[in-house]
Design a protein around this nucleic acid. Structure first.
Lengths: 210, 210
DNA sequence: CGAAATTTTGACCGGTTGGACAAACGTTAG
DNA sequence: CTAACGTTTGTCCAACCGGTCAAAATTTCG
C-alpha cells in the first residue's frame, strides 16, 4: 500500500538516491541543466540510465531535489549572522564563512550561479520567498547596527550583495581567477590572499568614522 | 576569385551578419551555448535556419565571432585605468565604468559569465593571454600606487577581482537582485544605490591611513 | 530584358537525448 | 524450493538539434 510516488523505505534506496544526487551535483554544476545529460549523471553514479530513472522520475526531478536539499546548506552562513554579537566581527565572520563555502563547495556555488544566470526558471519562488525573507531580516539587523553607530551607514542590501559577489566569485569564476593569477599563484594560498584582501576591504569600508 | 571563406563584400552581407550576432547575443546570454539552438537564434534574427547557416558556417562560428567582437568592449574600462591620474579617482572611475557596463550591457556580461562558468572551454587562450597580460599590467600600476603611499597596501589582483565581482553581479545575478529587493526597489534606482554603496565601500577601504 | 550571381527556403539526414517498457536478475521469506 | 518483491538493464521511440543540399526566389548587372 503506497502513495503514487514510491516512498523511500530502505537504507539502500536512500543511499542510491544520495549517490545519484552527488553525481548530479558534479554534472549539473559543470555543464548547467540543459548541458547535462541523464547518461552523464548515470555514468558518474556508476549505473545505467534506466536504473537512474528508477530512482528519480525525470531529469527535472533530480534537479529539483538537489536544489531543495542544498538550499539550507547554502543559506546557513547568513542565518548565523547574529544581532547580539559585535557587528564588525559578525560581518567579518559571515564573509569568512562565505569564502570558505566558495572554497569547499564550489560545485554548489556554480549550480546556483548557473540557475540564476538562466533566469532562475526553477527556483524563482524560493528567491522571492525564503531568500528574500531571510535577507530582509538580516538587512534589518544591519540597519539597526548602523543606526546605533556600530558600523558605517550604507545600504544593507547592497552590502549583502557585495559579500555574495566577492566570495562566490572565487568559486563561479575559478578558471578565470586561475588564468589571471597564473600557475604559480593558483595554489591553495589564493583563498588566504582573498580572505586577507576582503577583510581589509570591508573592515576599513565599514568602520564608522571618528 | 575568392578564398575558401567567403569574404564579406556587400553592405547587406555585413548587416545580416550583424543582425545574426545581435540575435545570438540575446539567445546565448540567456541560455548558454549548449542551451541555445540555431533555430532560436534564427527566429530572433527573423530568418530561417538554413539562411542563417548561409552567413555563418556553424553555431561555434557564431559564438566565436561574437566573443571576438565583444572582447574589446568588455576590456575597455580596465584599459582606461591610467597611471598618471589620481589613484583613488582612477579606481573609482573604473568601478563606475564597470557598473555602467553591467547596467547597459547585461547580456554581454552574462555571455562571458556563462562561458567561464562552464570552464571557459572556448576562451581559455584569451584568458591566459590577452586578459592575463592586461591585468598584470594594471596590477603593476596599482602596486606602484601602493608603494607610493597613494592607496592602502593590499593585493592588487584581488582588488581587481573584487571590482569585477561586485559590478558584474548586478548583471549576472540580476534576477536574484530583483527578487531580493522586491518590485518596489527594483527600479532603475538600484544602480545608483549600488554606485553609492560601492564608492563608500572601496573609498574607505582604499584610503591610506593617517 | 535576360543571364549570372546571390539569397532564401523546404525537405531531409544522422546523431543525441529524455524517457518508456518489458524482460531479466537478485533477494528475501514462507 | 518458490513465490513475491525490489532492482537492473537492453531495447526502443519520439522529439530535438546541428547541419546539408538542391531547388526556388530574388537581386545585380550587362
Amino acid at each position: 500500500m503506497e502513495a503514487s510516488a514510491p516512498r523511500r523505505r530502505t537504507r539502500i534506496q536512500q543511499e542510491k538516491r544520495d549517490l545519484i544526487l552527488e553525481a548530479a551535483l558534479e554534472v549539473f554544476s559543470a555543464r548547467g541543466f540543459r548541458g547535462a545529460t541523464i547518461d552523464q549523471i548515470a555514468e558518474a553514479a556508476g549505473m545505467s540510465k534506466p536504473n537512474l530513472l528508477y530512482y528519480f522520475r525525470s531529469k527535472e526531478d533530480i534537479h529539483e531535489t538537489l536544489m531543495q536539499r542544498l538550499l539550507d546548506t547554502w543559506l546557513a552562513p547568513l542565518r548565523e549572522l547574529d544581532e547580539i554579537g559585535d557587528p564588525l566581527t559578525e560581518l567579518l565572520g559571515y564573509i569568512r564563512r562565505k569564502l570558505e563555502m566558495a572554497r569547499d563547495f564550489p560545485r554548489e556555488s556554480r549550480l546556483f550561479a548557473n540557475e540564476i544566470l538562466q533566469g532562475a526558471p526553477r527556483i524563482m519562488p524560493m528567491l522571492e520567498g525564503e531568500l528574500k525573507a531571510l535577507v530582509d531580516e538580516k538587512a534589518a539587523i544591519i540597519e539597526r547596527w548602523m543606526h546605533a553607530g556600530k558600523i558605517a551607514r550604507t545600504n544593507p542590501y547592497h552590502l549583502i550583495f557585495s559579500i555574495w559577489a566577492t566570495t562566490q566569485h572565487y568559486a563561479d569564476f575559478d578558471v578565470q581567477v586561475r588564468a589571471v593569477l597564473g600557475p604559480e599563484r593558483s595554489g591553495d594560498g589564493r583563498f588566504e590572499d582573498a580572505a586577507r584582501f576582503l577583510e581589509g576591504l570591508f573592515m576599513e569600508g565599514l568602520r564608522p568614522k571618528g
